[in-house]
Design a protein around this nucleic acid. Structure first.
Lengths: 250, 250
DNA sequence: CAGTGGTCTAGACCACGAT
DNA sequence: TCGTGGTCTAGACCACTGG
């Protein structure tokens, strides 16, 4: 207890609620005591009660919307198997990679945008181009049960993608990797870089993130057997929706 | 601007500061306007100014300590190459895996604790044991420049580890994987599960995390060529200190 | 429309860091 | 010691949800 001498502080109150959640006394989806409840129970002012609830929310333990009671947060992440997703057998057979993650169902791709532009220095470096060399940019979002869980932006060298289905919104069965294979640029090796941070305002909005939810940034580079980079894909994922799974051979 | 009708809200103030940081006007390490500055500049009360600064801090953009001015946060993550780390050549030659990450330097392992206990159901499931079967638990923390960046807890079946260097604090050159190989249980396959969330209070303390810093939870399972799990390692990483790097073959 | 979360102020006091 | 962040209150008003 720092600050005020006598009485409970908002961190102490938050701690009590935290442990009630951890113990299962307050299960997922359950209402948490309201500000009024806390004011009465601990003899604190409204702002202090609010701060206690805010702490929980910022730690990702609860969700709160104006007007509605604060509730214990539910998690139901999906598992993303990087190796299975990226095996040639998957995209070779026309299976959308997406099907691997979310076996059956209502997952939807939205907001597909394909544009052509000059490469930034970052993208140029990743694709081993000279800066400014044109690239095709494909951006899209993935929805699960109506909730956006992933935003992805791919860049491919225009000299490969121009005039092919890769430069079309719908790339056909197997997606861009199958098309790259058709064109003699079959990806053989992938690298994924994983970073984590709190989202920007825009990311919060685009992914409809609750407070206290970090994002995972995955930057994937696909290369041919000759080592030529043919695609770089920057994914921004809702960390509450994903468990990443990687397999590694010794 | 929600809430109060007239004037700037704390989110608006935070946004202004955010963009000043993003634009580079306030570079890493630079002082951010103080509460008093903000009160005067925007004509708001102290609590409102405080909330603006708090938001930035909770978004991981700044660091603040009592007494000292709030400053723009510095990031200097290290890159962790999962595949290189786990290649048999590395631990086969007695190179500590740690050397791969942080080539030269002052990285230190501390708080090594080795105990023997009954397996929890989670650990038993991961190692393919019956629940309660004894396991050796090895926990340690890694410090970089005095800052803890990783806490790791490994579990190995006691029937393998008992009476071997694996049950000693110092496992010798090449670490536990080299010892497992000595014992005829050389790991051939690894799986890493990656989760992300905000840290618990304990994790905040153990890793000395600034506010607004998520943790990355990596659970690695090591298996022999026969598919027998021989180790499960739960790592809790400071997300501001790490970039994970995975390689995948198509 | 009652209850809940969210914002705001003015004033106060405390803890800590740098000087 | 002074300035900074951190905590707290009492009272007020607003925005939204749910029954």
């Amino acid at each position: 207890m720092v600050g005020k001498q006598r009485g409970v502080g908002y961190e102490a109150i938050a701690d009590i609620l935290r442990s009630r959640i951890a113990s299962g006394e307050l299960p997922a989806g359950e209402k948490v005591p309201s500000e009024n409840d806390l004011m009465e129970a601990y003899g604190v002012g409204r702002e202090t009660a609010y701060k206690a609830l805010r702490l929980l929310r910022d730690d990702g333990l609860t969700v709160s919307r104006q007007g509605a009671p604060t509730r214990v947060r539910k998690f139901e992440p999906i598992r993303r198997y990087a190796n299975e997703r990226l095996s040639a057998e998957v995209w070779g057979n026309g299976t959308s990679m997406w099907d691997i993650d979310v076996r059956d169902e209502k997952a939807k791709v939205t907001d597909v945008e394909v544009t052509r532009l000059e490469s930034s220095s970052k993208v140029a470096a990743a694709l081993n181009l000279t800066r400014g060399e044109p690239v095709v940019r494909r951006s899209r979002r993935y929805l699960l049960d109506g909730k956006p869980i992933l935003r992805a932006i791919s860049y491919l060298p225009a000299k490969i993608a121009d005039g092919t289905p890769i430069a079309q919104p719908n790339t056909g069965p197997g997606g861009i990797y199958a098309r790259l294979a058709d064109l003699g640029h079959a990806p053989a090796m992938f690298r994924e870089e994983v970073r984590v941070r709190m989202p920007t305002k825009e990311e919060k909005a685009q992914l409809k993130l609750d407070r206290g939810t970090p994002v995972i940034i995955v930057v994937r580079t696909a290369s041919t057997a000759e080592g030529q980079a043919v695609e770089v894909n920057e994914m921004t994922m809702d960390s509450a929706s994903y468990i990443l799974d990687y397999a590694i051979n010794a």
